[in-house]
Simulated assay, not measured.
Amino acid sequence: MTAAAARFYAQGVASTGIDVITADAGVAKMSLYNNFASKAELVAAYLEQRQEEFLALHRRRREALPTGARPGERALTVFDAYVEHAEAAAEFRGCGLLNAAGELATGDPGRDAVARHKAEVEDLLRDALTPRDGERGADDVGGLAEHLSLLLEGAMARAGLEGSTARLHRARRHAAILLAAS
């Protein structure tokens, strides 16, 4: 899985063959097929792994918040997890999920998985923005969550094209301004 993830992120899903993955991993092709029935299944596992990496970073950031953190502070943890995940890449190429989805045909289960993962990010924002026990919140939590999600994903797309996380840092600053005003 490590070899596949590195190749898929660096070179793309379509241009990475099973032979190069098994060579990188130092395993026989049958070893790979004992764990994954097809390349499509391996790609699905890669997409799940990428999302789980992000979710683990986000959980850690949410758990580190002080008790009573405000909705805006909770929402910014999503941006922080994106930045951390991006900065962990040896050579940043943007969102691994979106990169893979761009190579997959419409209707491919991998594209559907990426769509679900991106909806999950928006749900994390919506949950973060939902007022808790007497908190004041935004008038339109769903609309603000969607707005922040679009800001984040747009920044990720541009950051990937530029090979720099600077856009993600700016998006976080813009999000903080929006959240302070809501």
Rank of each mutant, 00 (worst) to 15 (best):
A3K: 04
Y9Q: 14
Y9R: 12
Y9E: 13
A14K: 15
T16I: 02
G17I: 04
V20I: 15
V20E: 14
V20L: 15
T22L: 14
T22S: 07
A23T: 13
A23W: 08
A28W: 03
K29Q: 14
K29D: 09
M30P: 10
L32Q: 11
N35V: 00
A40F: 08
E41H: 05
L42D: 12
Y46G: 09
Q49C: 03
R50G: 04
L55S: 08
L55K: 14
L57G: 06
T67F: 03
G68I: 11
G72A: 03
E73L: 01
L76K: 03
L76D: 00
V78M: 07
D80K: 00
Y82S: 14
Y82W: 15
A86D: 11
A90E: 13
E91S: 01
C95T: 06
L97T: 03
L98P: 00
G107T: 12
P109C: 06
G110N: 00
R111Y: 00
A113L: 12
A113I: 08
A113N: 02
V121I: 12
E122P: 09
L124M: 07
A128G: 02
L129Y: 03
L129T: 02
T130M: 02
R136K: 07
G137T: 11
G143F: 05
E146G: 04
L152N: 13
L152Y: 13
A155G: 13
A155K: 10
M156G: 12
G160H: 12
L161C: 09
A166T: 03
R167K: 10
R167W: 11
L168A: 01
A171P: 15
R172C: 04
R172H: 04
L179V: 07
A181E: 12
A181Q: 14
A181G: 10
S182A: 12
